[in-house]
Design a protein around this nucleic acid. Structure first.
Length: 875
DNA sequence: CAGAATGAAAG
DNA sequence: CTTTCATTCTG
């Protein structure tokens, strides 16, 4: 549908080739998409890896296609769509849910509902989206410096020449943009986009296509890359700090730059890619391993392999090699400068490792591997910064010498590399307690660095980062032993530091993997999953918020922080740690769905998952004990309904998984792309991009209707406008608040009428149609602000009443039944852990709001609210 | 293709 | 302030 427009455009432009009719629109360049993923700091590494994997997967076959796609992307105008704003993101993410709930509702109606939800959405949550949107925008802008949102007041694009010109204008980038001119975009607009693209000119090429091509090229001639570019990390300080997205953007831009330097930079990036690809290709053989050595690429390759399940043994071998004389090998191959650089770090690393070994002898060599892996991850986050000042200096010096000139570009490549090299110290530093880390001098260093990075990413938007604690957590990732890591996570949870938990997860995985020789490779994969990162992101974002920082942005985080001290513990922690998606399947051993099962298999194979499972199990138990089940139940119910169609919730959980698997496998069909799929399927690259995009999306919290309901509860009708108040609603000023309410009420009524007017909507009969009802219903259960609600309720249309009561009672009953634990498993199976986590978090949140301490039992207060659940409205 | 929503950007 | 446009998809 939409595609039509675009397609037209494309055809007009000359895409005509029209290879992909519509191709969803990758809003962002693939790079951006990846970046999005990166959002979560942790994930960054993973994401990158994933990206790489994808690239690899694409392999030669993919390259061409990818290129084309990239071209499309580049093809500036077309691809580059203005970044979605927060609301759109929200809509995109939740529309499916809404639709599920209200199948009959058409999009418009759904949009309205979404708007309502949006209004109700807690500011914090909103912020997440806004932040995301901002990041997107920033990344987008970076990628397309000259991008203009509006076609300069031209006439509407549609009218005369629908697309071509207007769009071009829109996207047209000012050539002046110092950075990259995405030549393709400019030139292409009228001349021949594809040509540019196709062209080997790396300089002209933009974004991924460039990288891909380069990568291939590099494969062919690895030397070149090494020679031209070095892993210059030097400049990077700034770049480093930047969020991954930016980095990607920069990279892409750099690649696109015609300037010589840019070329060099490209080479470096390309080189990396090449390495990756080479590694992957070689993976079959032992050699690749050597090369990769410590490099992130290598790790990625390993991950890929692991995912495939092809050769764990090889990886082991590699690892062993690395452990012994990884450097030497590297040197041998070490045409690449970066590797050389690595060596130095290696030294530092060795020392560090020694320390680490002391701390954790268990893993022994494996530990090294793990460390490496961890390092990679760390890179994302703190990466370079984390390193000791000494190391950094050395690196910098080297870098400066080698390639100070390539700032942007160097960054990406260098960062990765550095990461791999990065001092194992982190592990060392990592203490069981996030806080603890801070105390340690070493840790202190890290945090600072971390902050910087975060700042970069967020600084733009949020002046204040409070993520420090979280950062510390991340640092901790490197936990030495599995057990320790677990403990650490637990403790962290107890403390309420969500970020820490997340961090802990990864470490755990690593650890485990390390423990089980093979695991290492496998480990890499799972950890990479972005899910975790999401959570992290969330936490970060929240942290960013000054006011709310205390509260974890994510539900999960909230739950963890609050609940816990007492009982909850591990389970919950585990969840957060484990990526919601990934975790899901494992959590329910027996019940895991078939879909999940696939993922599980992989995971299980890895072995590290065990811990996750256990954690999940614990979490699950916890949830049950606390009474979260009720809420879960509600979700489940919803899910069932939806299941018929397509489960949003399932999608959440599975989505990532699917995407993940997809990436590895490289298969086409992903749920996401339903529309685009057919066309895009042919092109893996596009799919990849899409996937990534989705992932990013997924990273965004998807709130179950229940959530909204709850939210609604506090501020029932305000719905739209006041809605924002939801959680803390009353606090604002009551006076205005009430007035607002009235307004809202009117609006609502008007809307209602409006709907009524429309033939479709049956008034009472179907509660479904009125999503709004939910709100009303919610209103019924007043949490704290009873008065307003009551008033509202009274004033509110009768419609709600009738439905509400029934529904409410219904809900309550359901809740009661649900409370019984036994069912949980089924539920869990049904829902992804993420969903559970959300539920738990939500409940926690409520608790928090109330300021009532969580009862160990948990059931208590929340439960009543839980009833809110509400899915009642649906039916 | 219109249109429902929100928001960012540009005029 | 107003206009565009981003996403989504039924009618």
């Amino acid at each position: 549908m939409k595609g039509s427009n675009r397609n037209k455009d494309h055809s007009a432009e000359g895409e005509g080739a029209g290879k992909r009719p519509k191709r969803k629109c990758l809003q962002w360049h693939p790079l951006l998409a990846k970046k999005l993923l990166d959002f979560s700091e942790e994930e960054e590494e993973e994401d990158e890896e994933e990206d790489i994997d994808k690239v690899q997967l694409l392999g030669a076959d993919g390259l061409e296609q990818d290129v084309a796609e990239t071209e499309d992307d580049e093809s500036p105008e077309q691809r580059a769509r203005r970044p979605m704003n927060a609301f759109l993101l929200f809509c995109k993410r939740h529309r499916s849910l809404v639709r599920q709930e209200h199948p009959r509702l058409d999009n418009r109606g759904a949009t309205k509902i979404l708007a309502d939800w949006w209004a109700v959405l807690d500011p914090k949550e909103k912020q997440k989206y806004t932040d995301m949107a901002k990041e997107y925008k920033d990344a987008f802008m970076k990628a397309n410096p000259g991008y203009k949102w509006c076609p300069t007041t031209n006439k509407p694009v549609k009218s005369p020449t629908p697309t071509v010109n207007p769009r071009k204008k829109l996207w047209a980038f000012p050539s002046d943009s110092s950075r990259d001119l995405p030549s393709p975009k400019k030139t292409k607009t009228e001349e021949m986009p594809q040509l540019n693209f196709g062209m080997a000119d790396p300089t002209q090429m933009g974004g991924l296509s460039m990288l891909l091509l380069a990568g291939e090229h590099a494969l062919g001639t690895p030397e070149i890359s090494s020679g031209t570019c070095r892993p210059d990390v030097s400049e990077s300080s700034e770049l480093r700090q930047k969020s991954p997205l930016f980095q990607f953007a920069e990279i892409s831009s750099s690649t696109s730059h015609p300037d010589a330097p840019s070329k060099q930079c490209q080479a470096s990036a390309l080189f990396q890619f090449a390495e990756i690809s080479s590694n992957t290709s070689q993976l079959g053989g032992a050699e690749p391993v050597k090369r990769c050595g410590k490099s992130a690429l290598f790790q990625l390759a390993e991950m890929c392999l692991a995912s495939e399940g092809v050769k764990m043994e090889e990886s082991k071998l590699i690892k062993a090699k690395e452990a012994d004389g990884g450097r030497i090998k590297e040197l041998e191959k070490g045409k690449e400068e970066r590797e050389i650089k690595m060596e130095k770090p290696d030294e530092a690393r060795l020392q560090k490792e020694a320390d680490v070994e002391k701390s954790a002898k268990e893993n022994g060599r494996d530990s090294k591997e793990l460390r490496n892996f961890e390092e990679l991850r760390m890179d994302d986050i703190m990466g370079i910064k984390m390193e000791d000042p000494k190391d950094i200096k050395k690196e910098e010096l080297e870098e400066d010498q080698k390639c100070s000139h390539f700032p942007d570009f160097s960054y990406s490549a260098s960062s990765k590399i550095i990461i791999s090299d990065v001092p194992s110290r982190k592990d060392h530093l990592c203490h069981p307690h996030g806080i603890m880390i801070i105390e340690d001098p070493t840790t202190l260093n890290k945090p600072e660095k971390l902050k910087k990075k975060k700042k970069k990413s967020k600084m733009d938007r949020h002046g204040n980062d409070k993520s420090t604690p979280k950062k510390t957590c991340k640092k901790r990732q490197s936990s030495e032993s599995d057990i320790e890591s677990v403990i650490y996570t637990i403790e962290a949870v107890a403390k309420g530091d969500w970020g820490i938990e997340k961090l802990g997860e990864t470490p755990r995985k690593k650890v485990r993997t390390s423990s089980s020789g093979k695991g290492s490779i496998l480990d890499a994969k799972p950890p990479k999953k972005k899910v975790k990162s999401r959570e992290k992101k969330m936490s970060k974002e929240k942290s960013s918020d000054t006011t709310k920082e205390s509260r974890p942005p994510d539900f999960l985080s909230i739950s963890a922080s609050k609940n816990i001290p007492g009982e909850v513990p591990e389970g919950i922690k585990a969840e957060p740690l484990t990526p919601t998606e990934d975790a899901l399947p494992p959590s329910l051993p027996g019940q895991a769905k078939p879909e999940d099962s696939d993922c599980h298999r992989k995971i299980e194979t890895c072995g590290f998952r065990k811990s996750e499972r256990s954690c999940k199990g614990a979490l699950y138990k916890t949830l049950v004990s606390e009474g979260m089940l009720t809420s879960l139940r509600a979700n489940v119910d919803r899910g069932k309904r939806s299941s018929g169609k397509g489960n949003s919730s399932d999608q959440e959980g599975c989505w990532n998984e699917e995407s993940w698997t997809f990436n590895q496998i490289g298969t086409s069909g992903s749920k996401k792309f339903k529309k685009t799929k057919p066309k895009e399927d042919s092109l893996l690259g596009s799919t990849k991009l899409d996937e990534e995009f989705e992932k990013k999306f997924n990273s965004l919290p998807q709130y179950s209707p229940v959530t909204f309901d709850r939210k609604c509860v506090p501020v029932p009708r305000k719905k739209k406008k006041t809605g924002s108040m939801s959680s803390e609603p009353t606090k604002t000023s009551k006076g205005p608040f009430q007035s607002q309410k009235k307004n809202l009420f009117h609006k609502i009524v008007s809307k209602y009428k409006h709907k009524k007017e429309k033939p479709n909507v049956p008034e009472k009969g179907s509660g479904d149609k009125w999503s709004n009802k939910q709100f009303f219903l919610d209103a019924i259960h007043p949490t704290e602000d009873d008065k307003p609600k009551e008033q509202l309720q009274r004033s509110l249309p009768k419609v709600t009443e009738a439905g509400c009561n029934d529904e409410c009672s219904h809900n309550r009953e359901a809740a009661e039944t649900r409370s019984s634990t036994p069912e949980m498993p089924a539920v869990s199976a049904f829902f992804s852990l993420a969903a559970l986590a959300e539920v738990a978090a939500m409940e926690n949140v409520h608790r928090g709001q109330r300021s009532t301490p969580l009862t160990h039992d948990g059931q208590p207060k929340e439960m009543p609210q839980a009833p809110v659940l509400i899915s009642c409205a649906d039916q």
